[in-house]
Amino acid sequence: MSKETEFPSTGSANLSPSQSHITRKRRSSSLIQHLEPDTQDTKIDQQLNPNLNADWVHYKGAWIVHIVIIVLLKIFFNFITILDNNWKWTLTNLTYNIGSYIMFHQVKGTPFEFNSGAYDNLTMWEQIDNGDQYTPTKKFLMLVPIGLFLVSTHYSYYNLNLFILNGVSCLCVVVPKLAISHRLRVTLY
């Protein structure tokens, strides 16, 4: 879908004929782009080898890791004595949500080079369970930020400013997990 357009460079009189054109990719004017379906070749490449990047969520204890990370974040923020308990829970929520957003929705491809680039266009969330929606794993991973939002809201004593901060943070992590957001890209550059 990406097209290349040639743009003449300024001062092309000083350049050789082979350098007189600069090739750049054309960029869409839309902030939200829908990823094209996989080609048949890509589907075949994906079926050849298991996707260890997305299969880790089915191993023993993988779900517990998220709870352990939240507990460790809370312990870390408890050591900062100048913060109120409200802010400790809010910072725990924000830190977990930022980390999980980057991990599940921002980084594309696999960290291992054994799939010949078959998953380079997909985020980890799109790779989990072969892109199937509302599997037990995806339900759990969607409920963790919602539960953390509820806990952090409760322990911040329903402070309106912290509620809004926690709520926006929760929405920024949960909305990309919904089926309506599957294979959508929001680009700001």
Rank of each mutant, 00 (worst) to 15 (best):
S2N: 12
E4K: 09
T5H: 14
T10Y: 10
S12W: 06
N14F: 07
L15G: 01
P17W: 08
Q19A: 13
I22V: 10
K25Q: 12
R26C: 10
S28G: 05
S30V: 03
S30L: 08
Q33V: 12
H34Y: 06
L35D: 10
E36M: 07
D38H: 08
Q40C: 02
D41C: 06
D41R: 07
T42E: 09
K43P: 00
D45F: 08
D45Y: 10
D45E: 15
Q46R: 15
Q46F: 05
P50T: 08
L52C: 06
A54W: 00
A54E: 03
Y59A: 02
K60V: 11
G61D: 02
G61H: 12
A62R: 01
W63L: 05
W63A: 05
I64M: 11
I64Q: 10
V65M: 08
V65N: 08
H66G: 07
H66C: 03
H66I: 00
I67E: 04
V68L: 14
I69N: 05
I69W: 05
I70Q: 10
L73F: 15
L73S: 07
F79Y: 14
F79W: 13
T81C: 01
T81R: 07
T81W: 07
I82G: 03
L83I: 07
D84P: 08
N85R: 14
N86V: 06
W87A: 06
W89L: 09
T90I: 10
L91R: 07
T92Y: 10
N93P: 01
N93A: 14
T95D: 09
T95R: 03
T95N: 06
N97L: 07
M103A: 13
M103H: 12
M103D: 06
H105R: 02
Q106G: 02
G109Q: 04
F112Q: 10
E113D: 13
N115V: 01
S116V: 09
G117E: 04
G117Y: 08
A118N: 10
A118R: 12
D120M: 05
M124W: 00
W125L: 00
E126P: 00
Q127C: 04
Q127H: 01
I128F: 01
D129P: 02
G131F: 02
D132Q: 14
Q133F: 01
Y134F: 13
T135R: 00
F140P: 10
L141T: 02
L143G: 05
P145G: 03
G147L: 09
L148K: 06
L150C: 07
V151M: 09
S152R: 12
S152C: 09
H154L: 14
H154C: 12
Y155H: 15
S156W: 03
Y157N: 15
N159S: 15
N159K: 10
N166C: 04
G167S: 08
V168Y: 11
S169L: 01
S169T: 08
C170N: 14
C170S: 14
V173G: 02
V173M: 11
H182P: 01
R183A: 00
L184D: 05
R185P: 01
